[in-house]
Design a protein around this nucleic acid. Structure first.
Length: 605
RNA sequence: GCGCCUAUAGCUCAACUGGAUAGAGCAUCGCCCUUCUAAGGCGAGGGUUGCAGGUUCGAGUCCUGCUGGGCGUACCA
């Protein structure tokens, strides 16, 4: 396990740094690399030292624009003290007009100050280049990334538990596509299992009674059928019959099942549309599609001599999953009664994704609680050859959504919250908020803006937190215009849009020379150029919250610039044009960033 | 029992996977609207990063041991 993790990380590292090559950081890194080579030739460094050069963005301007800790890392192997080595590095480094100064600071940091004109040139280029100057990956670096997300159970209505997977997964999907990777969405819906017998029996009963099939309230339908199951022996028997019939491929039963799934899926698609989640019907590949593969998975495990019968069940025991007493945990792939389990279908899915879809990475946006399950499935899939060792299988787990009391988010009566109800409330609250700020706005605009803000607020609140942790859901906070929230960022964007509206210019086509005269302009420019590396982190680690923090910082720096640097009323025409360009890049970056999170901006609020 | 996750300002969250003085917002207190949307900006106070050790030039981050919380752990997914 451990060795595989390390291997995967190295793989990602080498493949994912493709955005580099033209960024300011990469230029400095190349210079450092060249310098280290020279030092090797001079015998200062041994030939076999090949450290990873990490250039950091400095937090404090007195430390320059970039800082590097390489001298401290190499001090020991070189047998020198860090500051002396840093001195040696900076004196050996070829001079470059793009670097205005280097300094050695603290215990041995090398601080780089970049030339202002280079910075100006970079922002101008980013503004006029397609994709905000983000290099899309080259052909050789394009990865096929399968993303397993959302995956609701079709037997029931979508509830708040499906929100995180759908939203976070979709943000990573969009970011990967923006980088130029080939993404294959997989909605691994729950469309199989014993509960379908009960549902189909109830469907049949309603149809026989000539009642209109009412699946508008799927949750109610589920409860009603469960009630019939519990109260009537006859009904329960029929339900069991239907499960068997369904599994044996009975036509009538299959038709009922498909009808049910189709209606249930429409509910999901409606929610995706409302949420702005990019999943469609063609991305659905439910559990049931792997039914035909399950026996062959078990057979393959048997052929590989991995299968052990234990208490009548077919299991695999792997040394990786051993506790201190030496007892190994089983992975059960076939029940004593012959049925298969989720480990079996997940193995089949891995095999399909690796061999049919030819994935380089498979990302699973699934609840953190299933971590052990996925660790087992991934380890076994590799061991059994369902996936070769180069494919990276990554569980992107997330924590629970809690209420204000820190306990799982529930209704007052203790039921799970339906996703539609949550979204309804968010929209209502947002409409009321927008109305309070714009008492004279007409109802149509009010609703349009309110709905947009409400959905964005819910999504952003979730996306802006580290997915690994539990988080507290709070309407007041997410709908605030203050702080790291969707309304604030959307508003920040409208401020930019409003400038261009007033000037009668198009934010998307303007370009030209940018002069960074004040600190406010420089700070904003520096931040804007960090977009590519932020995206890289997002897609490598599956963490959209890093992008949220980034957009928030951009918006903050823009606001500060906006307050201190008159744009339309600038002193000279050249200054005005320059500031317009900088504002345009800020606006486009905020908009693009939000779009990658699945959030649409408004031109006016 | 064993395993995984987690503990950061009164509250909600960050901290670029070992870097420099741990940062934001809310709340509290003080400024700034005849000037591009004040739904904004500027500033102040607020911290023994759960506790105790260890590793090293350097630890919120890595290791060990405690304590509190969450979640898993053989035929549900």
């Amino acid at each position: 396990m451990r060795s595989r993790k390390i291997r995967n990380r190295n793989l990602q590292r080498t493949r994912y740094e493709s955005y580099k090559g033209s960024t300011m950081k990469s230029v400095v890194e190349a210079l450092l690399l060249q310098t280290l080579d020279t030092l090797k030739q001079q015998g200062v460094l041994a030939e076999d030292v090949n450290p990873r050069i990490v250039l950091q963005n400095t937090k404090d301007k007195s430390h320059g624009d970039f800082a590097c800790n390489i001298a401290m890392m190499l001090a020991k192997p070189a047998g020198m003290n860090p500051r002396d080595l840093a001195e040696r590095i900076t004196s050996t480094m070829p001079s470059d007009p793009r670097i205005s100064n280097t300094q050695i600071a603290g215990p041995g940091f090398i601080n780089f100050f970049v030339n202002n004109s280079w910075l100006e040139e970079q922002v101008s280029k980013a503004l006029s280049a397609p994709n905000l100057g983000i290099n899309t990956v080259t052909d050789n670096d394009v990865q096929t990334v399968v993303i397993d997300y959302s995956s609701p159970n079709l037997a029931k209505e979508m509830h708040v538990g499906h929100l995180r997977s759908s939203i976070i997964g979709d943000a990573v999907v969009r970011a990967l596509e923006f980088q130029g990777h080939q993404v294959i969405r997989q909605n691994h819906v729950g469309d199989w299992g014993t509960q379908f017998g009960m549902l189909l029996a109830y469907m049949e009963e309603q149809q026989n009674n000539d009642e209109d099939l009412d699946l508008a309230d799927l949750e109610g339908f589920y409860r009603a059928s469960k009630q019939r199951f519990d109260e009537s022996e006859k009904f329960a028997n029929r339900a069991r019959e239907l499960v068997v019939a369904l599994q044996s491929g009975d036509d009538y039963c299959n038709k009922l099942w498909q009808e049910f799934n189709s209606i249930s899926l429409q509910h999901c698609l409606a929610i995706y549309k409302r949420l702005g989640v990019s999943l469609t019907a063609k991305d659905v590949r439910g559990e049931s599609t792997y039914n035909k593969d399950l026996q062959s998975i078990v057979d393959a495990l048997a052929d590989a001599k991995l299968l052990v019968e234990s208490n009548g069940a077919q299991c695999v025991f792997m040394d990786e999953f051993k506790n201190k007493e030496g007892e190994t945990l089983p992975i059960i792939v076939q029940k004593s009664g012959g049925g298969f389990l989720y480990a079996t279908s997940d193995l089949a899915a891995v095999r399909y994704r690796a061999q049919q879809l030819k994935a380089d990475r498979v990302l699973y946006f699934v609840d953190q609680r299933q971590a052990l399950h996925f660790n087992q499935v991934f380890a076994l899939a590799h061991k059994a050859g369902f996936a070769n060792d180069t494919i990276s299988l990554e569980h992107m787990g997330f924590g629970t959504m809690n209420g204000a009391d820190g306990k799982p988010f529930k209704t007052r009566s203790g039921d799970t919250v339906k996703l539609v109800d949550l979204l309804d409330e968010a929209e209502e609250r947002a409409i009321a908020l927008v109305r309070s700020k714009n008492p004279d706005m007409d109802t149509a605009s009010l609703e349009k803006i309110g709905k947009s803000v409400g959905i964005a607020a819910v999504k952003y609140a979730d996306l802006s937190k580290d997915r690994a942790r539990d988080y507290i859901f709070n309407f007041e906070q997410m709908l605030s215009f203050e702080g790291n929230t969707a309304p604030y960022l959307m508003y920040a964007y409208t401020r930019v849009a409003s400038i261009f509206d007033k000037a009668g210019l198009d934010m998307n086509t303007i370009n030209g020379d940018i002069t960074l005269a004040s600190e406010k302009e420089k700070d904003l420019a520096n931040k804007l150029l960090q977009f590519p590396e932020i995206l890289d982190r997002l897609t490598r680690r599956g963490q959209p919250h890093t992008l949220c923090s980034y957009i928030y910082e951009v918006a903050g720096l823009f606001s500060s610039f906006y307050e201190h640097c008159p744009i339309l009323a600038a002193d000279t025409e050249a200054e005005k044009q320059s500031r317009l360009c900088l504002a345009a890049l800020a606006g486009k970056t905020i908009k693009q960033g939000l779009n990658l999170l699945g959030i649409n901006t408004l031109e006016r609020m």
